[in-house]
């Protein structure tokens, strides 16, 4: 059904080449081909399709830079979310060569240049357009686990005390940026989207193990649901996908253990 578009040569702005070089003189460059899964019901019907683009990249270019080059110089309709561009905002999680990554944390030089780089939207979330997915299901399960400090008793005038060890106990799970890379890498989530998913459990963990929090029992009750932690099959996809290096499977295991300790 698709027509083969003619090869076009774009005329980039005079400074495009120096984009990431910061004027550092001759920088080695190489070509990369992106094979992007696109979906635009408004213009291309209800079926997704693959489209390939070849762009020139430089040593420190990230995949996000390549996507920008496509959008800015070739096809402005290519749609993807991005913001901070250095791995702290969580906007540009996508499937890159079959693995969930932040486009701004994948350096092109680290990918095999001989094969096209496969770029797809996150799996398991409804696709809206090109690489943009509906994040609402993801945030909905996040909101369900009561992701906020619950305290009882009188509020102290100064800070609540917490030892460095107590602070360290939940440090790993405070790093979550809610990019959805973990949840959308989980096959159990792919099936029907009912599983709470790793990200929600990670954020529950962050409070369950916070010495200042009194809401652990409620959160454990929520995650004891049939769609809760017991659906984790410990396949470690989430830990592998996390751009913040959170040991997610371990966190889920700790939540399971807390539930068992509570039950017996």
């Amino acid at each position: 059904m698709s027509t083969l578009m003619e090869n076009t040569t774009s005329s980039p702005g005079p400074e495009t080449g120096a984009e990431t070089g910061g004027g550092m003189g001759e920088i080695p460059s190489f070509d990369v081909t992106l094979r992007i899964r696109r979906y635009s019901p408004e213009t291309h019907g209800d079926e997704a399709y693959w489209q390939e683009f070849t762009v020139t990249a430089y040593g420190t270019d990230r995949l996000l830079d390549a996507l920008h080059k496509v959008k800015w110089d070739v096809d402005g309709s290519l749609t993807f979310r991005r913001s901070c561009a250095h791995g702290v905002c969580g906007s540009d999680a996508m499937r890159i060569n079959g693995r969930n990554r932040l486009a701004c944390k994948v350096l092109l030089k680290d990918l095999n240049p001989d094969k096209p780089i496969l770029v797809e939207p996150l799996k398991g979330l409804p696709v809206k357009k090109d690489l943009v997915v509906d994040m609402e299901p993801f945030f909905a399960s996040y909101r369900e686990i009561m992701p906020f400090l619950i305290t009882g008793g009188n509020e102290p005038t100064r800070e609540r005390l917490q030892s460095a060890e107590q602070r360290e106990r939940f440090d790993d799970t405070t790093k979550c940026i809610l990019c959805a890379a973990c949840t959308s890498s989980c096959p159990v989530f792919w099936t029907d989207g009912q599983y709470f998913g790793p990200a929600a459990i990670v954020n529950a963990h962050r409070f369950i193990f916070d010495s200042r929090d009194d809401g652990a029992a409620q959160r454990l009750e929520i995650l004891n649901d049939k769609e809760g932690v017991w659906r984790c099959r410990t396949i470690f996809n989430c830990s592998e996908a996390c751009p913040r290096g959170i040991e997610i499977t371990k966190a889920i295991k700790e939540v399971k253990r807390a539930m068992i300790t509570r039950a017996f």
């Binding site: 059904m1 698709s2 027509t3 083969l4 578009m5 090869n7 076009t8 040569t9 774009s10 980039p12 495009t16 080449g17 070509d31 094979r35 079926e47 997704a48 399709y49 693959w50 489209q51 390939e52 683009f53 070849t54 762009v55 020139t56 080059k69 496509v70 110089d73 070739v74 096809d75």
Partner: peptide
Amino acid sequence: MTTTQTQAAA
């Protein structure tokens, strides 16, 4: 910079 694009099969 040269940029080419092709559209693969649906």
